[in-house]
Simulated assay, not measured.
Amino acid sequence: MMEVPFIAIEGPIGVGKTSLANKLATHFGFHLLEEIVEENPFLGKFYDNIEEWSFQTEMFFLCNRYKQLEDIQTKYLQVNKPVIADYHISKNMIFAKRTLQEEQFEKYEQIYHILTKDMPVPNMMIYIHASLDTILKRIRLRGREIEQNIKATYLAQLSQDYEQFMNEFEKIHPNIPVVRIDGDQFDFVSNQEDLETIIEMVRTELHRVTLNTAN
């Protein structure tokens, strides 16, 4: 039985996850799942004072992403409708490890594992990485007011955390292909040739996923 495609796009804040997810969803005709960001009532306070508002911020994201994935499972994947998401729920642990105090993290981790143990797992990952200069430029360009106080040091550390996470992900999930995209080299928003190159990379991995599942 062929597995329905479920693609997740990941990478640090500002690398273009949502932009690429929109373009790929349109091209392949997949349902687009976008994470809830600006609706988080704690996010602005979080960027002003990470230590004080991190637990509330991370719990809001976790609960909303859990509900989104629950809906995706029943309304799309279970009825063979492909999905592309601009996040992977495991990103919660990347941020939580960086922002939560030890006691808070222990509580958060327990809740995370309870909520996600039965959640659908993507069968392809797209990982966008970029230099700090590129990330800062793209954050300025999209102009989200709540992001203007993000510290460059936080973004730099987050990029390192993502790199470590993706390296570990590939070791833990050797059967899930990871398409790595250099955000400094590929301008998939403004350059159609760059976008078409990425589309072909994704198409190749989709074919492999289909073959592996069929076998």
Rank of each mutant, 00 (worst) to 15 (best):
E106S: 04
H113R: 12
N92R: 08
M125W: 00
H88K: 04
T116D: 01
V79Q: 13
A152F: 03
Y87T: 02
Q101N: 11
E109S: 02
K75A: 13
M93V: 11
L69T: 02
D133S: 14
I89L: 05
R140V: 01
E103K: 04
I72D: 03
L115D: 06
I84W: 07
F105S: 01
R98W: 00
Q104A: 10
P122Q: 09
L132S: 13
I128Q: 04
I89P: 07
N123D: 10
I126S: 08
T116C: 05
Q104K: 11
Q78G: 10
L141K: 15
I94P: 08
L132R: 09
I150F: 07
M119H: 03
K107F: 03
T99R: 07
K75E: 14
I84S: 10
I84N: 12
T74V: 02
V121A: 10
Y112F: 15
E106N: 02
Q73D: 14
L132H: 08
Y108E: 04
N80K: 13
Y127F: 15
E102R: 11
L136I: 07
D86P: 06
N80D: 13
Q104H: 08
T74S: 15
M93C: 04
A96D: 06
D86I: 02
I114N: 08
L77N: 06
Q101G: 11
Q68H: 11
I128E: 07
R138C: 10
A96I: 00
E106R: 04
M119E: 10
E106F: 01
D71E: 14
L115Y: 08
L115F: 11
E147G: 10
Y76R: 09
V83K: 12
K117N: 09
E145T: 12
H113N: 12
L141V: 01
I135T: 15
T153C: 07
A85R: 09
Q78W: 00
L132G: 12
I135M: 12
K75T: 03
A152Y: 00
E145S: 15
K81E: 13
G143Q: 12
T134A: 10
K137V: 00
I84L: 08
Q148M: 13
M119I: 01
I72A: 15
T74W: 04
V121G: 04
Q78I: 00
T74P: 00
E102F: 02
N123C: 10
A96E: 06
D133P: 02
E145M: 07
A96Y: 01
M124D: 06
N149G: 07
I150K: 14
K75C: 06
K81L: 13
Q78T: 03
K91G: 05
Y108P: 06
M93L: 15
I114P: 03
R142E: 06
T116V: 07
Q148R: 15
Q78N: 15
L115R: 10
R140C: 02
D86V: 04
T134S: 11
K75F: 01
K151S: 10
Q78Y: 01
E147V: 05
N123T: 03
I135W: 00
H113C: 03
T99P: 03
N80R: 08
M124V: 03
T153N: 13
Y112H: 12
D133E: 15
N92I: 00
K91D: 05
I126P: 07
D71S: 13
A152V: 00
R144N: 14
I114C: 07
M125T: 05
E103T: 01
Y112L: 01
L141H: 13
H129C: 05
R98L: 09
